[in-house]
Design a protein around this nucleic acid. Structure first.
Lengths: 224, 224
DNA sequence: TTTGGATTCAAACGTACATTTCAAACACCT
DNA sequence: AGGTGTTTGAAATGTACGTTTGAATCCAAA
């Protein structure tokens, strides 16, 4: 009984690190089982397939995160008043940082996994999250809508996905960026610092004045 | 002579589409040569290896784009005065759209390739671009610095990479996003429209007020 | 028309992968 | 202690990949 849990945990722990670092497709079961020090067949025995292992790795975090996010969103919605956009975005911070209780560096690993998932296996993770947690995310969209009533729905759609891209890419490149930042500015980079740098950027981007047609015509005045 | 060019072109054309759609690692030479209707060995004969094919695909666009960007950056720098940030960002638009003359849908394909390259093969493309075109990009950073003199260098570094993430992720997910947008808002989505939507978002994010330590403490007080 | 380098072709090579198999080892229950 | 269902182990299976090979074919210059 203990042994089974142990093997599953060892696989999950090894898998998440390799997945976060190298991506899902570029990490082999042999690398995972070798790092986890378990037999190659253990993955298929305990999880069925590589695909299901990927889901299990993500679910370990998503389950915890989404419950917490749902709480926060529901709380803000209950206030029955428009909330400041930065406030709305800031509710992500605590639930995300609490993922460190799921596992060491859980926040960083989860966000890296998210980045990998959205770019590696095109469309799959997007569908999975929307299918399982769409109701939670709808609350978030509603909150943003309330705090930016001037924003058309389609513009909001694009800007939220721009923001998703910002987060996801930043986290997928986290290691490289942190290295450069430490070399060029000798500043220590932890995941919380990056998140805090992200918030004002995202808030300003989402709430930016909307584009009007006259805009690009002005720009291209010196040519077509 | 004609035949050789023809085969190389056919390979490049087939490869770029598949790379953009499926990613570099998840596209096999067999898929490429099958779509191009050439022999499997042709890739290794004409390009040496898959890695060199990837570089050739990217270089076809990078060469054209970087020359044009360099022109624009140099022109703006010569003005000897701070330029509006939106103006600086807008200089990307024309050179990017001119990639459509390299190939049909060249702009979309190149940006998708860029997205794939920055996330698929971790660090490789970043190094390649920095190594070959670092001097061009430095001019861009200088321009942004001039238009946002209040921004510390390290903050600028992060925000430019946030922006890179926004662009790159948006383009890598372009197809999925366009589908959703058309289904939910029945709006036609072309690459130019996405770029024009991106500009105000990026400009606002980059120029956002800088984060201060007291900031999150204000937030938890329930309102600004 | 012959020649010789450039290109194409079918086939094979070696490697790595996810998954399966089945016997051995294990843990728990009576 | 003995039997049962669960877990582990080493090995094999079949598939797909990037690359290589060497003969066949093409094509322009002699």
């Amino acid at each position: 009984m203990v042994a089974k849990q142990n093997t599953q945990q060892k696989i999950l722990d090894a898998a998440q690190s390799l997945f976060a670092e190298t991506g899902f497709n570029d990490t082999s079961l042999r690398q995972i089982t070798s790092l986890a020090e378990v037999n190659l067949a253990a993955v298929n025995y305990h999880f069925g397939s590589k695909k299901e292992l990927i889901q299990a790795v993500l679910q370990r975090y998503l389950r915890v995160l989404m419950v917490r996010l749902d709480q926060e969103f529901t709380r803000l919605l209950a206030l029955q008043q428009p909330n400041n956009l930065t406030q709305v975005l800031a509710v992500f911070v605590k639930p995300l940082l609490e993922l460190n209780s799921v596992h060491n560096n859980g926040t960083r690993i989860f966000l890296q996994l998210l980045g990998r998932g959205y770019t590696d296996v095109q469309g799959h993770l997007r569908w999975f999250i929307n299918h399982n947690y769409g109701r939670v995310l709808d609350k978030f969209v509603l909150l943003v809508q309330q705090s930016c009533p001037q924003l058309p729905a389609s513009e909001l759609f694009w800007r939220l996905h721009f923001s998703l891209g910002t987060v996801v890419f930043t986290m997928a490149s986290n290691e490289a960026l942190a290295e450069i930042a430490e070399a060029d500015f000798s500043e220590e980079v932890d995941i919380e610092g990056v998140i805090q740098r992200l918030l004002p950027y995202l808030a300003a981007g989402i709430a930016a004045p909307v584009f009007t047609r006259s805009y690009p015509q002005q720009l291209s005045r010196s040519g077509t």
